[in-house]
Design a protein around this nucleic acid. Sequence first.
RNA 1: GGGCCCGUGGCCUAGCCUGGAUAGGGCGUCGGCCUCCGGAGCCGAAGGUCCCGGGUUCAAAUCCCGGCGGGCCCGCCA
Length: 558
Amino acid sequence: MIGDNNPWGMFVENVRRLLREVLPAHEIRLEEPPENLGDVAFPTFNIAKKVGENPVSVAKRVAESLNSKIDGAGWVDRVEQKGPYVNFFVNIKKMAEYTIPLILNLDTAYGHLRPRGKKIVLEHTSANPTDALHVGRARNPIIGDTMARILRAAGYDVETQYYVDDLGKQAVILAYGMHELGYDADSSPYMRASRLYEESEEHRARVDDWLRRLEGGDKEVVEKVRRACLEMMENRILPTLERINVRVDVLAYESQFLEKTREVIENLRPYCGKDNGALYIDLSPYGIEEKVYITRSDGTSLYATRDIAYHLWKLERGDVIINVLGEDHKLESYFVKTAIEKILGIEADIRVLFYSFVTLPEGRMSARKGRVVYFDALLDEAVERARKEVLKRREDMDMSRIDEIARIVGVGAVRFNIVRIQPEKKIVFRWEDALNFEGCSAPFVQYTHARACSILRKGGGYDSAKAPVITHEREIRLIKLLSKYPSVIEYSAEFMAPHKVAQYCVDLATEFNQFYRDCPVIHSEGEVRNTRLMLVDAFRITIRNALDVLGITAPEEM
RNA sequence: GGGCCCGUGGCCUAGCCUGGAUAGGGCGUCGGCCUCCGGAGCCGAAGGUCCCGGGUUCAAAUCCCGGCGGGCCCGCCA
């Protein structure tokens, strides 16, 4: 906690310390009590059992001896026994005096924890650049980029990578389509080439020839395929990612790892079975009854093998590897991890965040079957919808500003809607959900931020040197929630739970709206007014930081 | 067939790792709130076998076992 600027964390640490003094021999597990019963709770069931006493009397005794230790000047204001629980109440005066200036001073740094001195290489998206991104794939960059931001906030050095497959058959088909068939406005080069590959002997023969030449290292073909992939990345994939505030640090091309792949095959060979000249690894000693091939009969490598080489390269660049992958990659991912750690015996910290697919109500998206919603189309629709909403209420605003806000709100809505759901749950894409602008949504949170900005514009400044004076329950609740933000970052980073940050945004915005309803700011006076202005600003800073971690911009007006 | 994941009011979802005090939110429905800091907001109401059945436990949405339903994987594809 030290160095994390984590006010709530300090309070909780203090509770633990107090409990350890009274109960040195016991494990201390805290929980959050229901509304109004306290700020943290200590249940006494387990320890009562160990001591052979009833929980209520243990709670009574613990509460009593704790109360005699508390002088009211520390983080803990008081302790109450309620049934088998010992409930701790935070010293709200101290919390306010610590938290509010902390947030105001740290500003953009509030919620950034101490540097960990560790570098994480985080791979996400890595979609084959054969076609534009569709909504079914959109979850990957959104979860990946959000995790990268969370981990950076949590104090890690993070490098994001996109793995571009420019060696597989689909890359050859793409290149063939682009270089040999020319452009056609109606269908993508990949789709056309793919159809011809299936339908025409002649084209298939030529593509297969390219593929052989590619694997043989034919300069001309390698160059053509690489250029085709690069072109698709630059024209189709990266611009779409850019629209949702996702920028990838490193594009790693699969063709970079040919040499390393050969080494991997040689190192793995002693552990391989052989089937018709093809090498495979039997995973049954590692708990899964599967064979995974690492070469074809002709000795050429397979995707998983090259992925191992790529992982070894990532290990050279960082201390920890994190991959954001669709659940269909579970077996492949397990294989890569097992091969590196167990078979090659290389020490590696490889973590994987799997997510379930986004599907349409009719089923899985498929460009070939024409059952697809392109991500750009969704973004266009969301931005258009946002623009209509802005126009409805802001007749005074000039067009370029309206466009800017519509983009911020529309993009935010889309990102939020996907990241708010726990990754392992599947998402059925429905337009009405994706374009939801109220309740549990980015526009709701952004609106609250704009409201706070509006108050601050009209409030005309405050004196941050003055100590806060708390007079209302809503102020207390707001301060507590604000003080928990660093803990949210810490938790989300540790458990790779990006949806927790989204949830926090909604909770905090909701709390602020209640404060807004009950506590006049501009129309109050003296210390109360000064305190509330500081509080509004602290809220503004915190919600803006939290949205930023979600890759969502907080507009000052909308 | 085997493995992994998911199953919480009409719909979506948090909580599940680490069992504990009235299962939190949101959408939708119904009823209220702008002479007052931005109504993309707020308040209230109705609505629940936490998929089912066993087990462990003083205590299970949470842990274990067995079902059922859905998703994903089981390719010399990626």
